[in-house]
Simulated assay, not measured.
Amino acid sequence: MKTLMRASAVALALACSAAAPAALAQAAPPAADTMFRATTLNLAAYGETKIAPDMATITLGVMTEGKTAAEAMQANAVRMNAVVASLRKAGVPDKDIQTSNLNLNPQYRYVENQPPQLVGYQASNNVTVTVNDLKRLGPVVDATVNAGANQMQGVSFGLKDPTAAENAAREQAVTALAAKADLYARATGHRVLRLVSLTEGGGYSAPPPIMPPAAMMVKREMDAGTSVSAGELKVRVDVSGLYELTR
């Protein structure tokens, strides 16, 4: 009887010792629960600088009409050649003169209850001109209008190299972002531990063209030179950052 009891006790002890690791394993929390869960801030800010433009792009052209397509195109070519010659005379190099649009369209007369009647053709030809010296912009416009340009699509100001202005905007954006992170951290009883990631968006983009007054849409003789005010450009850079906080 004693021998049987000893055997049972030994078996029970062995069973308990074997079950102990399994019990401990079940009691241990999953690895995901032991991972460090940081308090973070995801913020955005921007920086903006103003700078005077140092170049301009103008799109101008010639529109002519004729009874036939050949007549309209020939008249257009003669006048456009005169416009291009005036640009060269004004000091614009060939590399800064680019044909941007050439169209030929039939013109119809519409009478009620009758089929459209072909009355002629309209030809148009545009060139995009880059002016790298803004002091010459007004004289360039005057020269082309006097040479026969009767279409003006607008003037767009820009920068030859926006790098310096963009970098200044970047510095402002990062400074503003860091200040915002410090403010949120203090307000929530934390402090900024580190910047985890930084992303940039946006950057310099040329502003839309400034449309000219109606007086510049037709050929005219200039009593005074065209006045051009370039103003300032805004260069903006947007950034977003992820910050880790600690107490």
Rank of each mutant, 00 (worst) to 15 (best):
Q26W: 15
G203N: 04
M63R: 14
S227V: 09
E71V: 03
Y204A: 06
P30V: 15
S205Y: 14
G225K: 00
A149K: 03
D94A: 13
Y184P: 11
A52F: 12
V155Y: 04
T128W: 09
T199D: 05
A69L: 08
A90R: 03
L24N: 07
L198G: 01
I210R: 00
R220D: 11
D54L: 01
L4Q: 11
R79I: 11
C16P: 02
L24W: 13
G158E: 02
V140W: 02
I58P: 04
G120C: 09
G241Y: 05
G231E: 06
N167D: 14
L43A: 15
T68K: 00
A90E: 01
L177H: 11
M211Q: 07
V111M: 11
Q114P: 13
S197D: 10
L118A: 15
T246K: 15
D133R: 00
E171H: 11
G231K: 11
N167R: 13
P29A: 10
T246R: 15
E71M: 09
A85I: 07
R88D: 01
T199K: 10
K135R: 13
V218L: 14
L12M: 03
I97F: 03
V174F: 09
A168M: 01
S227Y: 05
L12V: 13
K67H: 14
G66W: 05
M1S: 07
A31Q: 14
L245G: 01
P116G: 03
G241K: 03
G158R: 00
D161G: 01
S240F: 01
I58Q: 06
G154W: 13
A19P: 12
A28F: 00
A19Q: 08
E71T: 06
N126G: 15
P208H: 03
A77F: 07
A149F: 05
A85Q: 09
L102K: 11
Q26M: 15
A164Q: 13
E48N: 14
R136K: 14
P139R: 00
E48S: 14
M222E: 00
M80S: 08
P53R: 10
